[in-house]
Design a protein around this nucleic acid. Structure first.
Lengths: 206, 206
DNA sequence: CTCCGGGCATGACAAATGTCAGAAGCCCAC
DNA sequence: GTGGGCTTCTGACATTTGTCATGCCCGGAG
Protein backbone atom coordinates (compact mmCIF):
# COMPACT_ATOMS: atom_id res chain seq x y z
CA UNK A 1 0.00 0.00 0.00
CA UNK A 2 1.57 3.32 -1.07
CA UNK A 3 1.61 6.13 1.45
CA UNK A 4 -1.60 8.07 0.82
CA UNK A 5 -3.50 10.33 3.19
CA UNK A 6 -4.53 8.53 6.39
CA UNK A 7 -7.93 6.98 6.99
CA UNK A 8 -9.99 9.44 9.04
CA UNK A 9 -11.90 7.72 11.86
CA UNK A 10 -14.88 8.48 14.06
CA UNK A 11 -14.97 6.51 17.33
CA UNK A 12 -18.24 6.15 19.22
CA UNK A 13 -18.56 4.23 22.48
CA UNK A 14 -20.11 5.26 25.75
CA UNK A 15 -17.27 3.81 27.77
CA UNK A 16 -14.66 6.48 27.98
CA UNK A 17 -12.05 3.98 29.07
CA UNK A 18 -12.40 1.93 25.91
CA UNK A 19 -12.86 4.84 23.57
CA UNK A 20 -9.78 6.60 24.85
CA UNK A 21 -7.69 3.47 24.87
CA UNK A 22 -8.82 2.60 21.39
CA UNK A 23 -8.10 6.06 20.10
CA UNK A 24 -4.60 5.85 21.48
CA UNK A 25 -3.92 2.42 20.03
CA UNK A 26 -5.34 3.13 16.61
CA UNK A 27 -3.46 6.39 16.37
CA UNK A 28 -0.29 4.37 16.69
CA UNK A 29 -0.96 3.01 13.21
CA UNK A 30 0.56 5.34 10.63
CA UNK A 31 -2.34 5.14 8.22
CA UNK A 32 -5.13 5.62 10.74
CA UNK A 33 -6.21 8.87 12.34
CA UNK A 34 -8.95 9.43 14.87
CA UNK A 35 -10.63 12.72 14.00
CA UNK A 36 -13.65 12.55 16.29
CA UNK A 37 -15.04 10.75 19.33
CA UNK A 38 -18.56 10.43 20.67
CA UNK A 39 -20.19 8.85 23.71
CA UNK A 40 -23.83 8.69 22.57
CA UNK A 41 -25.77 7.94 19.40
CA UNK A 42 -26.87 11.51 18.68
CA UNK A 43 -23.38 12.78 19.48
CA UNK A 44 -21.93 10.30 17.00
CA UNK A 45 -24.25 11.62 14.30
CA UNK A 46 -23.34 15.23 15.04
CA UNK A 47 -19.65 14.41 15.01
CA UNK A 48 -19.98 12.55 11.74
CA UNK A 49 -21.70 15.52 10.13
CA UNK A 50 -19.04 17.87 11.38
CA UNK A 51 -16.01 15.80 10.44
CA UNK A 52 -17.16 13.56 7.58
CA UNK A 53 -14.90 10.63 8.55
CA UNK A 54 -13.94 7.84 6.15
CA UNK A 55 -14.88 5.10 8.61
CA UNK A 56 -17.15 5.25 11.64
CA UNK A 57 -16.40 2.69 14.37
CA UNK A 58 -19.59 2.42 16.42
CA UNK A 59 -20.44 0.53 19.57
CA UNK A 60 -23.70 -1.38 19.22
CA UNK A 61 -25.10 -0.31 22.56
CA UNK A 62 -24.98 3.39 23.24
CA UNK A 63 -27.33 5.72 25.07
CA UNK A 64 -29.64 7.72 22.82
CA UNK A 65 -29.59 5.62 19.69
CA UNK A 66 -27.92 2.32 19.06
CA UNK A 67 -25.21 1.69 16.52
CA UNK A 68 -27.60 0.35 13.89
CA UNK A 69 -29.84 3.42 14.07
CA UNK A 70 -26.84 5.68 13.76
CA UNK A 71 -25.63 3.63 10.80
CA UNK A 72 -28.98 4.02 9.07
CA UNK A 73 -28.90 7.80 9.38
CA UNK A 74 -25.28 7.92 8.40
CA UNK A 75 -25.89 5.91 5.27
CA UNK A 76 -28.42 8.48 4.12
CA UNK A 77 -26.42 11.54 5.03
CA UNK A 78 -22.84 10.48 4.36
CA UNK A 79 -22.81 7.68 1.81
CA UNK A 80 -19.04 7.88 1.61
CA UNK A 81 -18.61 7.01 5.28
CA UNK A 82 -18.37 3.30 5.87
CA UNK A 83 -19.65 1.96 9.15
CA UNK A 84 -17.96 -0.69 11.28
CA UNK A 85 -19.85 -1.96 14.30
CA UNK A 86 -18.11 -3.27 17.39
CA UNK A 87 -20.06 -5.08 20.06
CA UNK A 88 -19.59 -6.91 23.32
CA UNK A 89 -22.61 -9.22 23.16
CA UNK A 90 -23.17 -10.30 19.57
CA UNK A 91 -26.75 -11.42 19.12
CA UNK A 92 -27.48 -13.03 15.76
CA UNK A 93 -30.41 -10.75 14.96
CA UNK A 94 -28.33 -7.65 15.51
CA UNK A 95 -25.94 -8.68 12.81
CA UNK A 96 -28.80 -9.15 10.40
CA UNK A 97 -30.26 -5.75 11.21
CA UNK A 98 -26.86 -4.15 10.94
CA UNK A 99 -26.21 -5.61 7.54
CA UNK A 100 -29.65 -4.49 6.39
CA UNK A 101 -28.75 -0.98 7.54
CA UNK A 102 -25.75 -0.98 5.22
CA UNK A 103 -23.09 -1.62 7.84
CA UNK A 104 -19.83 -2.82 6.25
CA UNK A 105 -18.21 -4.52 9.19
CA UNK A 106 -19.34 -6.28 12.35
CA UNK A 107 -16.89 -7.54 14.97
CA UNK A 108 -16.97 -8.54 18.64
CA UNK A 109 -14.88 -6.69 21.19
CA UNK A 110 -12.85 -9.82 21.73
CA UNK A 111 -10.66 -9.03 18.71
CA UNK A 112 -7.29 -7.43 19.29
CA UNK A 113 -6.59 -3.82 18.41
CA UNK A 114 -4.13 -5.01 15.78
CA UNK A 115 -6.84 -7.05 14.14
CA UNK A 116 -9.29 -4.18 14.39
CA UNK A 117 -6.89 -1.93 12.57
CA UNK A 118 -6.68 -4.42 9.73
CA UNK A 119 -10.44 -4.67 9.57
CA UNK A 120 -10.77 -0.92 9.46
CA UNK A 121 -8.49 -0.91 6.43
CA UNK A 122 -10.54 -3.69 4.83
CA UNK A 123 -13.75 -1.76 5.34
CA UNK A 124 -12.20 1.46 4.13
CA UNK A 125 -11.08 -0.28 0.96
CA UNK A 126 -14.72 -0.94 0.21
CA UNK A 127 -14.85 -4.55 1.33
CA UNK A 128 -17.00 -6.06 4.00
CA UNK A 129 -15.95 -7.92 7.09
CA UNK A 130 -18.08 -9.96 9.45
CA UNK A 131 -16.64 -11.96 12.31
CA UNK A 132 -16.82 -15.61 11.25
CA UNK A 133 -18.18 -16.82 14.56
CA UNK A 134 -20.95 -14.25 14.66
CA UNK A 135 -21.77 -15.02 11.05
CA UNK A 136 -22.07 -18.71 11.84
CA UNK A 137 -24.36 -17.95 14.77
CA UNK A 138 -26.54 -15.74 12.63
CA UNK A 139 -26.86 -18.38 9.94
CA UNK A 140 -27.64 -21.19 12.34
CA UNK A 141 -30.14 -19.03 14.22
CA UNK A 142 -31.99 -18.46 10.97
CA UNK A 143 -34.70 -15.92 10.36
CA UNK A 144 -37.27 -14.86 12.86
CA UNK A 145 -40.40 -17.00 12.54
CA UNK A 146 -42.42 -14.21 14.11
CA UNK A 147 -44.76 -11.99 12.16
CA UNK A 148 -44.43 -8.24 12.55
CA UNK A 149 -47.26 -8.00 15.05
CA UNK A 150 -46.11 -10.94 17.07
CA UNK A 151 -42.72 -9.35 17.45
CA UNK A 152 -44.28 -6.02 18.34
CA UNK A 153 -46.52 -7.48 21.01
CA UNK A 154 -43.70 -9.58 22.38
CA UNK A 155 -41.60 -6.47 22.71
CA UNK A 156 -44.31 -4.72 24.66
CA UNK A 157 -44.50 -7.75 26.92
CA UNK A 158 -40.79 -7.58 27.55
CA UNK A 159 -40.86 -5.70 30.83
CA UNK A 160 -43.50 -7.90 32.40
CA UNK A 161 -46.53 -5.74 31.70
CA UNK A 162 -49.93 -7.40 32.05
CA UNK A 163 -51.99 -8.15 28.95
CA UNK A 164 -54.33 -5.24 29.61
CA UNK A 165 -51.48 -2.75 29.40
CA UNK A 166 -50.02 -4.32 26.29
CA UNK A 167 -53.42 -4.24 24.63
CA UNK A 168 -53.80 -0.58 25.42
CA UNK A 169 -50.36 0.38 24.22
CA UNK A 170 -50.73 -1.61 21.02
CA UNK A 171 -54.32 -0.47 20.47
CA UNK A 172 -55.48 -4.07 20.23
CA UNK A 173 -58.08 -6.08 22.08
CA UNK A 174 -56.88 -8.19 24.97
CA UNK A 175 -57.94 -11.34 23.21
CA UNK A 176 -55.85 -10.51 20.19
CA UNK A 177 -52.86 -9.81 22.36
CA UNK A 178 -53.22 -13.14 24.05
CA UNK A 179 -53.50 -14.89 20.72
CA UNK A 180 -50.33 -13.26 19.42
CA UNK A 181 -48.45 -13.98 22.60
CA UNK A 182 -49.61 -17.56 22.50
CA UNK A 183 -48.61 -18.13 18.90
CA UNK A 184 -45.29 -16.37 19.38
CA UNK A 185 -44.53 -18.57 22.37
CA UNK A 186 -45.41 -21.74 20.51
CA UNK A 187 -43.30 -20.71 17.51
CA UNK A 188 -40.36 -20.17 19.81
CA UNK A 189 -40.98 -23.39 21.70
CA UNK A 190 -41.54 -21.52 24.95
CA UNK A 191 -43.97 -22.45 27.67
CA UNK A 192 -45.06 -18.91 28.38
CA UNK A 193 -44.51 -15.44 27.06
CA UNK A 194 -41.74 -14.61 29.48
CA UNK A 195 -39.47 -17.37 28.34
CA UNK A 196 -40.53 -16.46 24.81
CA UNK A 197 -39.30 -12.94 25.39
CA UNK A 198 -36.04 -14.27 26.71
CA UNK A 199 -35.51 -16.60 23.77
CA UNK A 200 -36.36 -13.91 21.23
CA UNK A 201 -33.91 -11.60 23.00
CA UNK A 202 -31.15 -14.17 22.86
CA UNK A 203 -31.63 -14.61 19.16
CA UNK A 204 -31.87 -10.86 18.59
CA UNK A 205 -35.39 -11.08 17.20
CA UNK A 206 -36.81 -8.33 19.34
CA UNK B 1 6.31 10.26 45.03
CA UNK B 2 9.84 8.94 45.10
CA UNK B 3 10.84 6.48 42.38
CA UNK B 4 10.23 3.08 43.91
CA UNK B 5 9.57 -0.23 42.15
CA UNK B 6 6.54 -0.06 39.86
CA UNK B 7 3.06 -1.26 40.80
CA UNK B 8 2.58 -4.72 39.35
CA UNK B 9 -0.85 -5.14 37.75
CA UNK B 10 -3.12 -8.00 36.74
CA UNK B 11 -5.69 -7.11 34.09
CA UNK B 12 -8.78 -9.27 33.62
CA UNK B 13 -11.48 -8.56 31.05
CA UNK B 14 -13.04 -10.84 28.49
CA UNK B 15 -12.91 -8.22 25.78
CA UNK B 16 -9.52 -8.49 24.23
CA UNK B 17 -9.89 -5.08 22.61
CA UNK B 18 -10.28 -3.34 25.94
CA UNK B 19 -7.80 -5.44 27.81
CA UNK B 20 -5.10 -4.89 25.22
CA UNK B 21 -5.82 -1.21 24.89
CA UNK B 22 -5.83 -0.79 28.63
CA UNK B 23 -2.59 -2.67 29.02
CA UNK B 24 -0.97 -0.42 26.46
CA UNK B 25 -2.24 2.77 28.06
CA UNK B 26 -1.41 1.82 31.62
CA UNK B 27 2.05 0.68 30.63
CA UNK B 28 2.70 4.21 29.46
CA UNK B 29 2.67 5.30 33.09
CA UNK B 30 6.16 4.97 34.55
CA UNK B 31 5.04 3.60 37.87
CA UNK B 32 2.59 1.02 36.55
CA UNK B 33 3.43 -2.32 35.02
CA UNK B 34 1.07 -4.91 33.62
CA UNK B 35 2.46 -8.31 34.56
CA UNK B 36 -0.48 -10.53 33.61
CA UNK B 37 -3.70 -10.57 31.64
CA UNK B 38 -6.72 -12.85 31.77
CA UNK B 39 -9.97 -13.24 29.85
CA UNK B 40 -12.00 -15.33 32.29
CA UNK B 41 -12.58 -15.58 36.03
CA UNK B 42 -10.65 -18.82 36.58
CA UNK B 43 -7.85 -17.60 34.34
CA UNK B 44 -7.61 -14.44 36.43
CA UNK B 45 -7.24 -16.52 39.56
CA UNK B 46 -4.54 -18.69 38.01
CA UNK B 47 -2.66 -15.65 36.77
CA UNK B 48 -2.89 -14.01 40.16
CA UNK B 49 -1.45 -17.09 41.83
CA UNK B 50 1.37 -17.26 39.33
CA UNK B 51 2.35 -13.59 39.37
CA UNK B 52 1.18 -12.27 42.74
CA UNK B 53 0.37 -8.77 41.46
CA UNK B 54 0.04 -5.72 43.72
CA UNK B 55 -3.28 -4.69 42.24
CA UNK B 56 -5.82 -6.75 40.27
CA UNK B 57 -8.03 -4.79 37.89
CA UNK B 58 -11.07 -6.99 37.26
CA UNK B 59 -14.05 -6.64 34.99
CA UNK B 60 -17.29 -7.33 36.84
CA UNK B 61 -18.76 -9.56 34.15
CA UNK B 62 -16.52 -12.30 32.91
CA UNK B 63 -17.18 -15.84 31.78
CA UNK B 64 -16.53 -18.50 34.41
CA UNK B 65 -16.69 -16.44 37.55
CA UNK B 66 -17.56 -12.79 38.00
CA UNK B 67 -15.25 -10.17 39.42
CA UNK B 68 -16.69 -10.37 42.90
CA UNK B 69 -16.18 -14.13 43.12
CA UNK B 70 -12.61 -13.78 41.94
CA UNK B 71 -12.09 -11.02 44.49
CA UNK B 72 -13.37 -13.25 47.27
CA UNK B 73 -10.93 -16.03 46.40
CA UNK B 74 -8.13 -13.56 45.92
CA UNK B 75 -8.68 -12.03 49.31
CA UNK B 76 -8.19 -15.42 50.92
CA UNK B 77 -5.20 -16.49 48.87
CA UNK B 78 -3.34 -13.25 48.31
CA UNK B 79 -4.20 -10.78 51.05
CA UNK B 80 -1.54 -8.41 49.79
CA UNK B 81 -3.20 -8.05 46.39
CA UNK B 82 -5.72 -5.23 46.31
CA UNK B 83 -8.68 -5.60 43.98
CA UNK B 84 -10.13 -2.85 41.82
CA UNK B 85 -13.33 -3.63 39.94
CA UNK B 86 -14.22 -1.98 36.67
CA UNK B 87 -17.69 -2.32 35.24
CA UNK B 88 -19.83 -1.15 32.37
CA UNK B 89 -23.25 -1.42 33.98
CA UNK B 90 -22.99 -0.46 37.63
CA UNK B 91 -25.87 -1.92 39.57
CA UNK B 92 -26.13 -0.67 43.18
CA UNK B 93 -26.25 -4.18 44.64
CA UNK B 94 -23.05 -5.19 42.89
CA UNK B 95 -21.16 -2.44 44.60
CA UNK B 96 -22.41 -3.61 47.95
CA UNK B 97 -21.45 -7.21 47.25
CA UNK B 98 -18.06 -6.12 45.98
CA UNK B 99 -17.32 -4.09 49.08
CA UNK B 100 -18.39 -7.01 51.23
CA UNK B 101 -15.92 -9.18 49.33
CA UNK B 102 -13.11 -6.85 50.32
CA UNK B 103 -12.77 -5.04 47.03
CA UNK B 104 -10.84 -1.78 47.42
CA UNK B 105 -12.02 0.12 44.38
CA UNK B 106 -15.11 0.20 42.19
CA UNK B 107 -15.32 2.34 39.07
CA UNK B 108 -17.43 2.48 35.89
CA UNK B 109 -15.81 2.09 32.50
CA UNK B 110 -16.76 5.65 31.71
CA UNK B 111 -13.68 6.99 33.50
CA UNK B 112 -10.64 7.92 31.47
CA UNK B 113 -7.47 5.85 31.48
CA UNK B 114 -5.67 8.74 33.15
CA UNK B 115 -8.17 8.73 35.96
CA UNK B 116 -7.96 4.96 36.22
CA UNK B 117 -4.21 5.15 36.62
CA UNK B 118 -4.67 7.56 39.52
CA UNK B 119 -7.23 5.29 41.11
CA UNK B 120 -4.91 2.31 40.78
CA UNK B 121 -2.30 4.28 42.70
CA UNK B 122 -4.86 5.20 45.35
CA UNK B 123 -5.85 1.60 45.82
CA UNK B 124 -2.26 0.44 45.86
CA UNK B 125 -1.48 2.94 48.57
CA UNK B 126 -4.02 1.14 50.74
CA UNK B 127 -6.90 3.55 50.32
CA UNK B 128 -10.31 2.84 48.90
CA UNK B 129 -12.02 4.43 45.98
CA UNK B 130 -15.64 4.17 44.91
CA UNK B 131 -17.08 6.16 42.05
CA UNK B 132 -19.19 8.90 43.65
CA UNK B 133 -22.13 8.40 41.31
CA UNK B 134 -22.29 4.66 41.88
CA UNK B 135 -21.95 5.25 45.60
CA UNK B 136 -24.88 7.66 45.54
CA UNK B 137 -26.98 5.15 43.61
CA UNK B 138 -26.13 2.41 46.06
CA UNK B 139 -27.05 4.55 49.03
CA UNK B 140 -30.33 5.76 47.58
CA UNK B 141 -31.24 2.24 46.50
CA UNK B 142 -30.81 1.07 50.07
CA UNK B 143 -30.69 -2.47 51.27
CA UNK B 144 -32.65 -5.30 49.81
CA UNK B 145 -35.96 -5.69 51.63
CA UNK B 146 -36.12 -9.33 50.56
CA UNK B 147 -35.52 -12.21 52.89
CA UNK B 148 -33.03 -14.87 51.81
CA UNK B 149 -35.71 -17.24 50.56
CA UNK B 150 -37.60 -14.55 48.72
CA UNK B 151 -34.46 -13.60 46.86
CA UNK B 152 -33.68 -17.23 46.13
CA UNK B 153 -37.11 -17.96 44.74
CA UNK B 154 -37.10 -14.76 42.76
CA UNK B 155 -33.84 -15.79 41.21
CA UNK B 156 -35.25 -19.13 40.17
CA UNK B 157 -38.18 -17.28 38.64
CA UNK B 158 -35.81 -15.10 36.63
CA UNK B 159 -35.92 -17.01 33.39
CA UNK B 160 -39.68 -17.27 33.26
CA UNK B 161 -40.04 -20.74 34.70
CA UNK B 162 -43.52 -21.72 35.92
CA UNK B 163 -44.18 -22.08 39.63
CA UNK B 164 -44.14 -25.87 39.44
CA UNK B 165 -40.57 -25.88 38.20
CA UNK B 166 -39.42 -23.31 40.74
CA UNK B 167 -41.01 -25.35 43.50
CA UNK B 168 -39.21 -28.46 42.36
CA UNK B 169 -35.84 -26.77 42.03
CA UNK B 170 -36.16 -25.08 45.40
CA UNK B 171 -37.60 -28.18 47.06
CA UNK B 172 -40.58 -26.18 48.27
CA UNK B 173 -44.30 -26.62 47.84
CA UNK B 174 -45.95 -24.65 45.05
CA UNK B 175 -48.03 -22.74 47.53
CA UNK B 176 -44.96 -21.60 49.41
CA UNK B 177 -43.32 -20.50 46.20
CA UNK B 178 -46.34 -18.44 45.29
CA UNK B 179 -46.39 -16.89 48.73
CA UNK B 180 -42.76 -15.88 48.50
CA UNK B 181 -43.16 -14.52 45.01
CA UNK B 182 -46.20 -12.61 46.07
CA UNK B 183 -44.53 -11.04 49.08
CA UNK B 184 -41.39 -10.27 47.11
CA UNK B 185 -43.44 -8.55 44.42
CA UNK B 186 -45.36 -6.49 46.93
CA UNK B 187 -42.15 -5.45 48.72
CA UNK B 188 -40.73 -4.29 45.42
CA UNK B 189 -43.92 -2.54 44.40
CA UNK B 190 -44.34 -4.77 41.38
CA UNK B 191 -47.59 -6.02 39.93
CA UNK B 192 -46.29 -9.49 39.19
CA UNK B 193 -43.20 -11.56 39.67
CA UNK B 194 -41.74 -10.73 36.27
CA UNK B 195 -41.59 -7.02 36.90
CA UNK B 196 -40.38 -7.90 40.37
CA UNK B 197 -37.50 -9.83 38.84
CA UNK B 198 -36.70 -6.91 36.59
CA UNK B 199 -36.74 -4.41 39.45
CA UNK B 200 -34.60 -6.62 41.67
CA UNK B 201 -32.16 -7.01 38.79
CA UNK B 202 -31.94 -3.28 38.26
CA UNK B 203 -31.14 -2.72 41.90
CA UNK B 204 -28.67 -5.59 41.92
CA UNK B 205 -30.58 -7.54 44.55
CA UNK B 206 -30.55 -10.82 42.72
C1' DC C 1 -40.36 -18.19 79.58
C1' DT C 2 -42.90 -15.94 76.20
C1' DC C 3 -43.41 -13.40 72.18
C1' DC C 4 -42.23 -12.42 67.55
C1' DG C 5 -40.46 -12.81 62.98
C1' DG C 6 -39.00 -15.90 59.50
C1' DG C 7 -39.55 -20.32 57.11
C1' DC C 8 -42.86 -23.48 55.51
C1' DA C 9 -47.19 -25.32 54.51
C1' DT C 10 -52.36 -25.81 53.23
C1' DG C 11 -56.73 -24.54 51.26
C1' DA C 12 -59.73 -21.52 48.86
C1' DC C 13 -60.96 -17.81 45.99
C1' DA C 14 -60.30 -14.26 42.39
C1' DA C 15 -57.80 -12.64 38.58
C1' DA C 16 -54.68 -13.18 34.83
C1' DT C 17 -53.04 -16.12 31.25
C1' DG C 18 -52.85 -19.77 27.76
C1' DT C 19 -55.36 -22.39 24.29
C1' DC C 20 -58.78 -23.31 20.76
C1' DA C 21 -62.22 -22.73 17.36
C1' DG C 22 -64.30 -19.85 14.43
C1' DA C 23 -64.98 -15.74 11.48
C1' DA C 24 -64.33 -11.47 8.88
C1' DG C 25 -61.43 -8.26 6.05
C1' DC C 26 -57.19 -7.58 3.33
C1' DC C 27 -53.68 -8.04 0.18
C1' DC C 28 -50.54 -10.67 -2.54
C1' DA C 29 -49.37 -14.31 -5.63
C1' DC C 30 -50.46 -17.82 -8.80
C1' DG D 1 -60.36 -14.71 -8.92
C1' DT D 2 -59.14 -17.93 -5.75
C1' DG D 3 -56.34 -19.63 -2.20
C1' DG D 4 -53.53 -18.66 1.53
C1' DG D 5 -51.30 -16.02 4.96
C1' DC D 6 -51.61 -12.01 8.16
C1' DT D 7 -54.44 -9.15 11.14
C1' DT D 8 -58.05 -8.64 14.00
C1' DC D 9 -61.79 -9.84 16.67
C1' DT D 10 -65.07 -12.80 19.82
C1' DG D 11 -66.31 -16.31 23.10
C1' DA D 12 -65.41 -20.24 25.89
C1' DC D 13 -62.57 -23.11 28.46
C1' DA D 14 -58.57 -24.97 31.23
C1' DT D 15 -54.63 -23.68 33.60
C1' DT D 16 -51.64 -20.76 35.98
C1' DT D 17 -51.10 -16.92 38.86
C1' DG D 18 -51.83 -13.79 42.78
C1' DT D 19 -53.82 -13.05 47.29
C1' DC D 20 -55.33 -14.02 51.78
C1' DA D 21 -56.31 -16.42 55.98
C1' DT D 22 -54.62 -19.66 58.90
C1' DG D 23 -51.62 -22.89 61.08
C1' DC D 24 -47.18 -25.13 62.65
C1' DC D 25 -42.22 -25.22 63.91
C1' DC D 26 -38.19 -22.90 65.29
C1' DG D 27 -34.66 -19.76 67.26
C1' DG D 28 -33.40 -15.46 69.17
C1' DA D 29 -34.81 -11.00 71.87
C1' DG D 30 -36.64 -9.31 75.72
Amino acid sequence: MTSTRPVRLLLADDEHLIRGALAALLSLEDDLMVVAEAATGPEALAMARAHAPDVAVLDLQMPGADGVKVATSLRAELPGCHVLIVTSHGRPGHLKRALAAGVRGFVPKTVSAQRLAEIIRTVHAGHRYVDPELAADAISAGDSPLTAREAEVLELAADGAPVAEIAERAALSQGTVRNYLSSAASKLGAENRHTAVRLARERGWV
